[in-house]
Design a binder for these strands. Structure first.
Length: 459
RNA sequence: GAGGUUGUAGCUCAGUAGGUUAGAGCGUCAGUUUGUGGCACUGAAGGCCGUGGGUUCGAGACCCAUCAGCCUCCCCA
């Protein structure tokens, strides 16, 4: 038997890591709660048809499918084989798989809203912090199991929601100490560009092409567009669009000049102006985050219809650490039309990697044992145990060395675990009703009465 | 899905052009030290060299396959 291993792209988390991750989770949760969002949890698995077709062609490929049970039952054998042939020809078959692991938190949320529509008070604001799974090839900042922290509002068209979600992004990253760019764009502006270039059907081609801008450069983007039947004049417009620059105000002005004749573009510009207007420095915001309009931002998720978000950490080589946007009719996919929504997502695993790389975790996240009681014999440890429980009742994190071992060994144990205080209670102390408290960091100790121990300041 | 790269002790890595019994540091354990740690010294344990084939008199080294990690593209958090 060889050593056990982990499925590709999954990880175990040791104590240190768990504490640091919890620090991120609780920061995000606290901000979500502050903005009036309520928690929701949904199952790890969903019916396959709930997920399929929601994330685009690439997304479908990355959904982890769960094999049905009982495939090997003789009475199912023919059906299983037929289903397998279906799958081999690129189709899904319910006789082989009808469930899958959740791919994100937005679609399960939409499913939940559709199922509970009558019971929910609209606008409905929920947050959700759970793992998601993607059958992707692992690499830097990319895992097959990772956590998302989502906040969504459904049942409201108000741009005030976008304003608040922007503020949530800014607040969370400020609390975590990560300098970020909150990049904003609007699908409506992209749609206007597509319209200008010959029709909405070009939207996907154009957006995926311009999304590659910073990777393959302007020339290649143009080349790629030409291959997709975009005329020279239209490419010229795209070229101008892509070279929009300056501060946010200047960028908006240029886009206005370029696409202002389209109503959709006007609308998109107005929406962005609205959100930016709320985040002026004189408006109670002291954002360490910069809000940057990026008209080349074209998030792949095909259900976005309005403002889209992407978060980029400054000073590190890392994909986006958050994203989101507005969707007009997500629950329409599940039979409940006309429920607009907007949401954002935090990628905790990438945030963790960024904070680790930049050394941003505060020293205080180590919440290990504070006090180690030495074990110096049967009678001694009985007494020590009683005293220890008193401290624990006061919320002090304690442990007693389980064996009656040599001093040396117990000291080294405290060192290894970075336990700052030890309590020595040996035969002499037992007799005199005392105990010795030693501060290992300062290397000082004092003898106090056992009754005074529970009010000792372990700091 | 395509490509690159790595895989030797618990961890980080050496291992020369294929040649005896596979090395170091750190860590672990024991001792110097049975009531005062971090240091030092002494000693010990721990490896089918990722896995399976192949070439060779001989493979940790070379070839093929496979698995896993990391990285790039696609896409994404």
């Amino acid at each position: 038997m060889s050593k056990p291993s982990l499925p590709s792209g999954t990880r175990d988390f040791g104590a240190e890591t768990v504490r640091k991750r919890n620090y991120i989770f609780s920061t995000i949760r606290q901000v979500f709660e502050t903005y009036g969002f309520q928690p929701l949890e949904t199952p790890a698995m969903e019916n396959l048809d709930t997920l399929m077709g929601k994330y685009g062609e690439e997304g479908d490929k990355l959904i982890f499918k769960i094999l049905n049970n009982g495939l090997n039952d003789p009475k199912n054998a023919d059906r299983s084989r037929a289903a397998f042939d279906q799958v081999m020809s690129g189709k899904n078959d319910k006789n082989l798989t009808e469930r899958a692991l959740r791919y994100d938190l937005t679609i399960p949320f939409a499913r939940y809203v559709a199922m509970n529509y009558g019971k929910l008070t609209l606008p409905f604001k929920r947050y959700q912090i759970q793992p998601v799974w993607r059958a992707d090839r692992p690499q830097k900042g990319r895992y097959r199991e990772f956590y998302q922290c989502d906040a969504d509002v459904v049942g409201s068209n108000s741009l005030l929601n976008e304003v608040e979600l922007t503020a949530i992004y800014a607040t969370v990253f400020q609390l975590l100490g990560i300098a970020v760019e909150i990049r904003l764009n609007n699908r409506k502006i992209l749609a206007a560009l597509a319209e200008h270039c010959g029709g909405v059907d070009k939207l996907v081609d154009i957006t995926t092409a311009i999304d590659k801008l910073d990777k393959i450069g302007l020339e290649k983007v143009n080349q790629e567009l030409a291959e997709r039947g975009v005329s020279e004049e239209q490419i010229n417009t795209i070229r101008k669009y892509l070279s929009v620059n300056g501060n946010n105000e200047e960028k908006l002005k240029q886009v206005q000049e370029l696409l202002g004749q389209y109503n959709e573009a006007k609308e998109g510009i107005r929406e962005l102006e609205f959100v930016l207007g709320y985040h002026q420095p004189d408006n109670g915001n002291s954002l360490s985050a910069s809000i940057i309009l990026d008209f080349t931002l074209a998030r792949g998720l095909n259900y976005y219809t309005g403002i889209i978000y992407e978060i980029k950490a400054k000073g590190v080589q890392m994909g986006s650490i958050g994203g989101g946007g507005r969707y007009d009719d997500l629950t329409g996919l599940f039979g409940v039309p006309n429920v607009p929504g907007v949401g954002i997502s935090f990628g905790v695993d990438r945030i963790y990697d960024v904070m680790e790389e930049l050394g941003l975790f505060p020293a205080g996240v180590h919440m290990g044992t504070q006090v180690l009681f030495f074990n110096l014999g049967e009678m001694e440890s009985r007494r020590a145990y009683t005293l220890m429980q008193e401290l624990r009742n006061k919320g002090i994190r304690c442990e007693i060395y389980p064996e009656s071992a040599k001093f040396d060994k117990q000291f080294k144990y405290a060192d290894k675990k970075s336990i700052p205080f030890i309590v020595i209670l040996g035969s002499k102390e037992l007799e005199e009703g005392n105990c010795v408290v030693k501060d290992l960091g300062r290397s000082i100790q004092e003898t106090i009465t056992q009754s005074a121990l529970s009010s000792f300041a372990f700091e």
